[in-house]
Design a protein around this nucleic acid. Sequence first.
DNA 1: GAATAAATTAGGATTGGTTCCTATTGTAGT
DNA 2: ACTACAATAGGAACCAATCCTAATTTATTC
Lengths: 146, 146
Amino acid sequence: MRSTKQEIKEQFKAKELKLTPQRCAIYEMLTARTDHPTAEDIYRTVKRAYPMISQNTVYYTLSALKKAGLISEVNLGHEHARFDANMDRHHHLVCVSCQEINDVYDEALNRLSVSAAKERQYTILGHRVEFFGYCKRCRDKGKASL
Amino acid sequence: MRSTKQEIKEQFKAKELKLTPQRCAIYEMLTARTDHPTAEDIYRTVKRAYPMISQNTVYYTLSALKKAGLISEVNLGHEHARFDANMDRHHHLVCVSCQEINDVYDEALNRLSVSAAKERQYTILGHRVEFFGYCKRCRDKGKASL
DNA sequence: GAATAAATTAGGATTGGTTCCTATTGTAGT
DNA sequence: ACTACAATAGGAACCAATCCTAATTTATTC
């Protein structure tokens, strides 16, 4: 669900982030996608609208947005870090073949806990669940090649 | 639980891995630790016994051991990949401050499933659960500095 | 226990994502 | 408009991981 310019302006204001065209473009693009792009993907996409933008700006902006809690960095064993503007509580389902990421919403998964013993050793802040397997496309492709 | 030289020899034989002193040292060291070292950690440690060993050998060996299913690569948002010779089913608990990794054994966590809808789209192979929080040491340190 | 074929190793070169540095530009508040 | 300060562009630097090659070493066969 893509954020509007006005929504972005308000969110940035609330987080005391200066509003620049580059930032706006990066965040707007991230809110419009659900595929968890890499920094490089983001750079290439935003470059179409802002040809002079530098990779540095992309990295700096992603870092600022992350610190502000507007986006999250996702690390699921992919080669490069991926970014997600969906801050609703969710988990992930990753294709081990094409690396596609699918979001998983499930209240039961949000309520997991570790053993009492571990709870005493750690102050638990949260948890993540990552399912992995073959997406429909890759599964079918596999069958075809047998 | 450190593997003995004899055990390693048998395991390598079973997996059709050639047994070399460097490999043996790398795998033996990994089985003796539970802290999920990085490739660099492994390199520095094994270098003490084999000063001429190259980083390349470490990476090549880790890759071979991983392919053979004797170790696993763990990616929990740390800066670098980490390696684990503990192939028993388990999950992880990570300190967000010092990055320490703690193993979690819990049958209930092994039985999670995604929704029926997702099951139709994906062929699920497995899942991982990662808890994060502050370990006892970092929690106490935090209190001290307040 | 040598000979052979194939895999492993060491070392150096290379890659490529990410970070660092700095002058310039742009933003928000006064 | 003016000011203080943060963001940007561009390039240089960094460094874990990969690639390349020749020399060794391993496991197997005779």
